[in-house]
Every structure is written in C-alpha cells, then in structure tokens.
Design a binder for these strands. Structure first.
Lengths: 217, 217
DNA sequence: CCGCTCCATTCAGCTTCGTGTCAGTTTGGG
DNA sequence: CCCAAACTGACACGAAGCTGAATGGAGCGG
C-alpha cells in the first residue's frame, strides 16, 4: 500500500516515515507543492496531511482534492491545541485525524481502519456529457459502454477532469506525460489528444489555438 | 462473538483477554493441547493464535484445522523478527496476522475486519459471472462445478474479491503473497494470475498495463 | 525412512500492446 | 490566400505481460 506523507517537521516526518516503511511504501514530502505534484503523478492509497505547512494551510489543499472527486483517503495531523482544525478538517473531507504527539502504533491502527472503511464504499462516478468516469477503478464509459484507455490517455483525461472548464496548456500536458523538465520535441500531446478524442468523441475536448485545450462539463 | 485466544505469555494474554472481554466472549488457553480440546467442544467465531507455544509450533495446528475444512477464521500472532512465520502463517491458512508488540486497538480492528470478511452473509456465496465463491468455506465454483485452488491462488482471489471493481496493483498482490518488504524479483504474480485465469476463465481478471489487475463484479 | 505427489518458484521464449515519431493532411487566423 | 498550428494514420521498437516447463522442497502415506 502506497502512502503519501506531507509533514514539514523533520523529526516527526522521519519518525513516521521510518515506522510506516515497515509495512507500507511511503513517500514523504515537506511542502504542499511537492505533495500536489506527487498525487498528480503517483496513485496513492492514503495520504497523511499535516495542516500547518510552510507554503500554506493544508485545509485548502484537502478541499481542492475533495472537490476534484478523487477518492483518496486522508488522515489529518493536527497539534493538540488546535481543536478548531480537527472539526474543519473533518468538514473539509478528512477521513480521520491524529493529534500530535501521537503514538505510532495508534497511527497504524487508524490507517488500517480508514483503509478498510474506504475499500468498503462503492466508487464515486463523475459524469460529463456522455462520458462517465470512475477514478478509483480507472474506468471510463461513453454512453454506458466501457472504454479502454491506456496509461497516457488516462493521464491526460485525469488532467482535464481536474481542470474542467479551464484551459490546460500544452506544456502542462507535456509535464503530465513526461514529468517536469523533459525537453521533448514532438507533437506527442497532439497525438494523445487525438487518440482521446477518437475514444471520447470529437466534441469532448476543445482546441484553443496557441493556448492549449479545454474540457467542459 | 466468541473468541479463542491461544497465548502462553501471561502478561500479553492477560492484556489481550481483558481488552477483548469488553466486547467479546473470550476463552484464553495457554497450550495447543488445550486449544485443540476447546475447538472440539465449543464453536468459536475466531481464533487468535500465537505461534511459539510450549507444546509445539502453532503452524501445524493451523494446518490441521484447515485440512479438516473447519471454517474458523484465524489471526496469527508473531514476533517482530519472525517474518518467515508470517509468510508460512498465511500459507497455512491464516486470515491475518499481528506482529508483537501490537496495539490493542489495532488488534480489535483486525478482528473486526476478519470477522466482517468471514461472515458477510448468512449464506455467504458471492457470484461473479460464472464464478461463485464461499469465502468462509474457502470454496469456489465455476458453472456449478467446484474448483480446487492452492493457497496462493486463493490468496490472490481473496484480494480481488475484497476489491471488486477496483485496481489491485502488482505490488499489493506481491504483498499478499509474500508479506510486505519481500524484495522479490520475479514474475510470480503474473504466474499466479495466469493460473487463476486458467481455472476461473480468462475473462475473469483484467490486466491494466503498468497498473495492475482488476476483477469486475 | 523412503518414495510419491503436489505446490511454489524461477526461467526463458513468446506474444501483445503501448509509445513515440514522422509524414502528409487539414484547419483556421491574420 | 498563406502559413503556422494542429490533426491523424501508419509504423517500428521495446517494455510488459503470459505461459509452459524445469526444479526443488514440504508434507504425507506406506
């Protein structure tokens, strides 16, 4: 099971990461930015999110994740005295929380519990015109018929789904496909948009010349 | 719910028994002999089995229980350093394991999970296309004909059944087969998927390239 | 204690399929 | 009408996955 830990205190982060690595695959990020990038590129089973971070408050991040419809279970980490945070955290869509300082075994137990709960729920589906998407199962239907998408095609669709109604630049999509900083010199994005259109229907993705692409809801 | 605890360390046994007695009926035995006698006379819903016991190793006991076809859910208790035991435990038919020292709440969570799995329905047969599965009895039918699955095959099928409709990653399946952290470098998962398909029918398990596998309901 | 059987594990050779690239074509803005 | 941007069909390559076969070990019956 793959866990994303977002925690900026080195000592705590180190302790948690070490403990969890006995039983899970753990990626440890120290900023929201890195965390955001991580969940764009890797599929995690669970996220541990500290709320007080150098580059902003975790609650907005959490809200944006929930808004995007991603079914990622989240456990929030808060300080003892910030009860307000806990309540807001649960309102914002956290599945559980732990209070600093916490016992590492307790953390394991909560992870286990959340995980069990999460896998019992049916997957949420998102609908866009004739397209229906189940992000957890990576399933896509068009007019009720299931489509087979490849990894790259899915990555693109995913990007569009998270930015419905806004323009996604070509360079952003390149980044999605090939990671940051890859100086690719080809029309790969165009090729994949083309392939996606063929599967989703040609009116699913709009071209905005010189700017990028846009998917409307 | 009636639980049989087989554990020879007085302190641990006492702690576990006391904790569980808040929510369950617990019988605590300190030897395999007593344990064996207990399951002959009383009908238990679950057994907690320590492997290192004064009168022998618990694995043989577990094996004999499984061989007898008794559908008793078993959670194995092992020491931190005996990974080998864990793997063997799952091979021998354990439903789950906890590692000493463990958190009592984690134990409760695991008991709950195993129990839910074991007794999901009064007649817990689940149907998936031409496949029918009785998880409690560990039996599988295809078109009404019973199939014989090996321990590994069953472990895989079990994983799929608990995540119907969602993707199960290869690493997750490796974890199921070999426990976490086994630096395995082989295509064992592929081999077992292949064998399962041969038995269940080739359209039972979908491959998602680069992601894992998925079984649909 | 010895063979027998079944299962787990590994390996190698094969197949399938996703990917990236290119070339020729189409589109649309200026 | 022209040119740049975008589109798309085709193709070659390599990675990922599949599966039959060989090996060795554990359990079991004789």
């Amino acid at each position: 099971m793959r866990i994303l830990l977002i925690e900026d205190e080195p000592l705590l982060g180190e302790a948690v990461a070490t403990h969890l690595k006995k039983t899970h695959a753990v990626d440890w990020m120290q900023t929201l930015d890195d965390g955001a990038q991580a969940i764009e590129t890797v599929s995690y089973d669970l996220m541990l999110l500290d709320l007080n971070l150098p580059d902003g408050h975790g609650l907005n991040f959490l809200r944006s994740i929930r808004k995007s419809g991603r079914p990622l279970p989240v456990i929030v980490i808060t300080a003892r005295d910030q009860i307000r945070d806990r309540i807001d955290g649960l309102n914002a869509g956290a599945d559980d929380y732990v209070v600093k300082p916490f016992d590492l075994d307790e953390l394991s137990a909560r992870i286990f519990a959340v995980q069990r709960r999460a896998s019992a729920l049916p997957n949420p589906r998102q609908r866009i015109g004739a397209i229906e998407v189940d992000q957890a199962a990576r399933k896509v239907w068009r007019d009720g018929e299931e489509l087979q998408l490849t990894a790259r095609e899915w990555a693109l669709l995913d990007s569009f789904m998270h930015r419905l109604g806004t323009i996604v630049s070509k360079s952003k999509l390149e980044e999605v496909l090939y990671g940051f900083g890859s100086e690719i010199e080809s029309n790969a994005v165009e090729v994949y948009v083309s392939r996606l259109r063929k599967k989703l229907g040609s009116n699913s993705i709009r071209t905005l010349r010189g700017l990028g692409y846009r998917m409307d809801r």
